[in-house]
Design a protein around this nucleic acid. Structure first.
Lengths: 218, 218
DNA sequence: GTCTATATATTGATAGAC
DNA sequence: GTCTATCAATATATAGAC
């Protein structure tokens, strides 16, 4: 089912003989496994990828993966948890910094998009294979996402209260904004199309200055 | 070709055998299979669902499914194709109707959201299990989606040309809008949260009157 | 059109040598 | 920490009876 176009992907043990690359398998770090797995999951879907695929990508056998992770689902959870928790730790503090709600939200949009692209592959997995998580793990991810969404809604509410924003419904505005931001991971391509700075600029303008109708300095 | 949205048109209302419901299996229509499969795929993910699960849901055995569909992937394709083609056939013509670009886009937004909710389960599958399709089927779906996106971008361009819209980048505006609209399927719930009319109203306002900065009648 | 029975392949995971 | 070997479960799909 997960037949990739291998046909010649035997673990190149002969490459180890080359000077400077003596048996390049000193130790596998968990992040290498997670990274390789994310690449596979994003492209083929979690359930279409076998442990042997992931193992081969990091140069070990399938069984050896279980020395690092208790199960396949734990790898998926590691991907989803990292990519969901990081925005809460890195972007949300920007909402507590100095400045008006519009300024703080603009800072969050920038950080959100930068993280989304920096961890684009993992984001695709988290947006796609969430329902292959166990019920407990799924609940943890959902909680993090809900909290993030609530904080975005709150800064909109604050902006409305201060007269800087004006929206029909802060909750729906937050959902529209977050769906629009996260959607970028689905079509962004590092080699073609608009660049990340262009996207940040246009999206910040469209969201902060237009969706939320920030008052113009005039 | 257009499958009736209702499901109360079972031809054989003929009373089954008197005692109880002995083997109610008059005939299975392909749409029943697709519908049941979509429900499973949306909730558990395509690759996590077995043909036996789908078969059981419609009251037959797994092997009998192959009388109606050549493979499991064909069922997925039927789901994705229907839900992707219908907006092109039902919503895009609204962009060719009379009215200003803002009016035509507003009509499309309404139709898009109504279709999204009416076929919410199938949309979730199409947004989630696309990369379990064969390469050819995937390409067909992608083409339809690209065309739809292009048409939305074109109406934005038209609005800019006529002075009704003003955006930093019509292409990015179209992507933002479509991601925001499609994202609704991810959190909408028929029993709680904002109703569809509320969503249509708020989203139309935020998108047409704000993101695109349609000129206000004042 | 649906059934039983089964072929064939692949999966996640384990045991134990080294 | 990685290996070989393998188990047990499950998958899609097929063959042929009825």
């Amino acid at each position: 089912m997960t037949q990739s176009p291998d046909s010649g992907t035997l673990p190149s043990a002969e490459a180890a003989v080359v000077a400077g690359a003596p048996r390049r398998r000193p130790k596998i770090r968990p992040e290498e496994i997670v990274s390789a797995a994310a690449e596979f999951f994003a492209r083929e879907g979690y359930a279409n990828v076998g442990m042997r695929d992931v193992a081969e990508a990091v140069g070990i056998r399938g069984a050896s993966l279980y020395h690092h992770f208790a199960s396949k689902e734990e790898i998926l959870y590691a991907i989803c948890l990292t990519v969901t928790k990081e925005p809460n730790e890195l972007s949300l503090p920007l909402l507590d910094a100095a400045g008006t709600p519009a300024q703080r939200l603009a800072a969050l949009i920038r950080a959100h998009l930068e993280h989304l692209i920096q961890r684009r592959v993992e984001h695709l997995v988290a947006l796609q294979d969430l329902n292959s998580l166990s019920a407990e793990h799924r609940a943890t991810i959902d909680d993090l996402r809900r909290y993030y969404q609530r904080r975005v809604r709150d800064v909109i509410v604050a902006g409305v209260r201060e007269g800087e924003f004006d929206v029909p419904d802060p909750q729906l505005a937050a959902l529209l904004i977050l769906d629009a931001l996260n959607g970028v991971s689905g079509w962004f391509h590092p080699d073609r199309g608009p660049s990340l700075p262009q996207i940040i600029s246009a999206y910040t303008e469209m969201i902060v200055a237009r969706v939320l109708s920030a008052s113009q300095p005039s």
